[in-house]
């Protein structure tokens, strides 16, 4: 593993942002709109009924964490697509760069955009709606870590799909976070779901993250319960990351064998 080569992949993505800052702005405009919209909706919901907890804390917290995961996945996907669109894959793969170094470089750049988004959303939610991302203390950190690992796994899986099916498969990458959010208990407890979907939800790490966070906010969490969820979420996230990386490698080797890598470009 060569850190200079990883840095080359990382800095290639940063140069793109520096050369054209509108790429960054485009991302953050949508995040800002989402926070403001859900901030007002949560505020309104808070005025209804006899809720015993703050809607803003629950909904904005879920939104910020889910958007963080989404940025990691999309950052990886967009980095890979950039290399396809600019016909750069051959340049990279004919150099000493290894697949593992390439993927770590892409992940590193998506961490930067993911964290920037996270900070901006937290700041807007804090200033505009009095939201505190650290309301449950530093125990949020390992949960963010699990979402980060799962975001990487999703990004790697989507890159593998694009590599296998061609750049038009990009469309697969956009709705995946939204579809997963429906069944992962992001905005509502998983026991809201029909029984079969509850079982499906338990297959994905975000369910353990958001169930734990909600339990802590409602002050009904037990230490054992949180630790079990943390272990389950982490185990599953690592498992999916391993699977997604293997999948990407298998597709790479398939493309190496079939000649698709040598001719891979934006038009296929």
């Amino acid at each position: 593993m060569n850190p200079t080569r990883i840095y080359a992949v990382f800095v290639r993505q940063l140069y793109l942002l520096r050369n054209n800052p509108t790429r960054l702005a485009g991302n953050f405009v949508w995040l800002t709109i989402a926070i403001v919209q859900w901030g007002f909706i949560s505020k309104y919901l808070g005025t209804l009924g006899q809720a015993n907890f703050n809607f803003i804390t629950v909904i904005l917290g879920a939104l910020i964490l889910w958007e963080f995961l989404t940025r990691i996945q999309q950052g990886l996907m967009m980095g890979f697509l950039e290399d396809i669109w600019s016909n750069n894959l051959i340049n990279f793969f004919a150099s000493p760069l290894k697949i593992s170094e390439y993927t770590i470089g892409l992940v590193s750049s998506s961490i930067v955009t993911g964290l920037l988004g996270f900070l901006i959303m937290s700041a807007i939610a804090g200033l505009g709606f009095g939201y505190d991302i650290f309301i449950i203390g530093l125990s949020i950190v390992p949960f963010v870590g699990i979402l980060f690992l799962f975001g990487m796994a999703m990004g790697m899986f989507v890159c593998g799909m694009i590599f296998r099916l061609g750049p038009t498969a990009e469309w697969l990458g956009w709705p995946i976070p939204m579809v997963l959010s429906l069944i992962s208990g992001v905005y509502y407890p998983i026991d809201t779901l029909p029984a079969p979907l509850m079982l499906v939800a338990k297959l994905f790490p975000p369910a353990y993250v958001f169930e734990s966070l909600r339990a802590q906010l409602e002050l009904v969490a037990t230490f054992e319960g949180v630790m079990i969820n943390l272990a389950m979420g982490l185990g599953l996230a690592l498992f999916y990351l391993f699977l997604a990386y293997r999948f990407f490698l298998i597709v790479y080797r398939h493309n190496l064998r079939t000649g698709k890598l040598a001719r891979f470009n934006a038009s296929i």
Binding site: N2, T4, R5, Y7, A8, V11, R12, Y15, N91, F92, S95, P96, L97
Partner: peptide, 8 residues
């Protein structure tokens, strides 16, 4: 710069 780094 990028290609120089890739070839160390």
């Amino acid at each position: 710069k990028i290609f120089g780094m890739l070839y160390d």
